[in-house]
């Protein structure tokens, strides 16, 4: 029972970060039908900025706004430089474009920084725990969960209550009709990338706090988690993406504790296999959205 609760908190902490990443992936998929394999690069870029800023003696408190701004800016720049040029292209082209962006960004760091891992200091409290009875809770997990919930509430309000949110939802449902109603395609797509960058920025703060390091290929892991979580949720559904993130986090933590020691190191592999199985039996994801093909 105790370990169950412990795993639950761990899983939710982990899942929170995935949920933020997945939501960012889903927002962009909604407006552009682009599965963004370059989403993790927002964390890579943020990581290098954090590495330099922390190296210059700045505190982690400054990192919070700095990373968010970096992530939003990077997201917008990538949209401007690459994705804006392939709007409306075939899925094949979109997939490979985002794959290409991933490589260009990581190659730039390879070229101008180095291939080696850059370490930076983590805030002191990241490893701290507190106890409730015999339950050891990481402060970090609690902070992540609380911040994520606040962010998700904020995002929900943004999407439900503001004209921008309304435009984004309308554009995700039917882009052409939204334009007919006067929704500006440029604004809504850039807005989506900014929102996606903001969510990735929050995720980046925690990801980097926990990792304490960055390297050119640092984006692969968060990208994969975000993309898979979004897919678990059904891609088109924002709510599904968030649920997918939590599901993925919980699955990882519980599998790691349940699998026999000899193959515990293969947890991630097992998770991928499970996800592949999910697609095989429910290709539309957990949250199905009906799409009818017009003939």
């Amino acid at each position: 029972m105790l370990s169950l609760l412990q795993n639950l908190i761990d899983g939710l902490g982990r899942g929170s970060i995935y949920a933020l990443l997945a939501l960012g992936v889903a927002v962009i998929f909604g407006v552009m039908h682009l599965l963004n394999f370059a989403h993790g690069e927002l964390i890579t870029v943020s990581g290098y900025v954090a590495f330099w800023a922390l190296g210059a003696g700045w505190s982690w408190w400054v990192m919070v706004p700095l990373i968010i701004v970096t992530s939003v800016a990077t997201s917008l720049v990538i949209e401007r430089v690459a994705f804006s040029r392939v709007r409306g292209a075939s899925d094949f082209t979109l997939l490979l474009t985002s794959f290409g962006v991933h490589f260009v960004v990581s190659a730039i760091f390879l070229l101008y920084v180095s291939a080696s891992v850059k370490n930076f200091s983590r805030p002191g409290w990241v490893a701290d725990t507190f106890s409730i009875g015999s339950l050891n809770v990481e402060i970090f997990d609690m902070v992540v969960i609380v911040v994520t919930i606040v962010t998700l509430i904020g995002t929900t309000l943004l999407l439900q209550r503001t004209m921008f949110g309304l435009a984004l939802r309308a554009a995700a449902a039917d882009f052409d009709t939204a334009r007919l109603m006067g929704v500006k395609s440029d604004s809504v797509i850039r807005g989506a990338f900014a929102l996606s960058g903001f969510l990735a920025g929050i995720a980046a703060i925690f990801w980097l706090m926990r990792a304490g390091s960055v390297q050119p290929s640092a984006g692969i892991d968060p990208m994969l988690k975000g993309v898979l979580a979004a897919l678990i949720g059904g891609l088109a559904s924002l709510r599904g993406a968030v649920l997918g993130g939590f599901a993925l986090g919980l699955a990882e933590v519980f599998l790691r504790s349940w699998l026999p020691d000899s193959i515990a190191s293969l947890t991630e592999g097992v998770v991928f296999v499970l996800i592949a199985l999910l697609f095989i039996f429910r290709p539309q994801g957990l949250i199905a959205t009906a799409t009818a093909e017009r003939v």
């Binding site: 599965l35 094949f92 997939l95 592999g269 592949a276 697609f279 095989i280 290709p283």
Partner: peptide, 28 residues
């Protein structure tokens, strides 16, 4: 698996299954 996922030209789910395979083999 690809067939079950309703693979067709440009299908996103099919591509992600293949991506998952790449990661599974790498992890293993």
């Amino acid at each position: 698996g690809l067939a079950r996922s309703g693979a067709e030209s440009g299908a996103v789910a099919a591509t992600v299954i293949t991506l998952a395979l790449l990661f599974v083999t790498h992890e293993v």
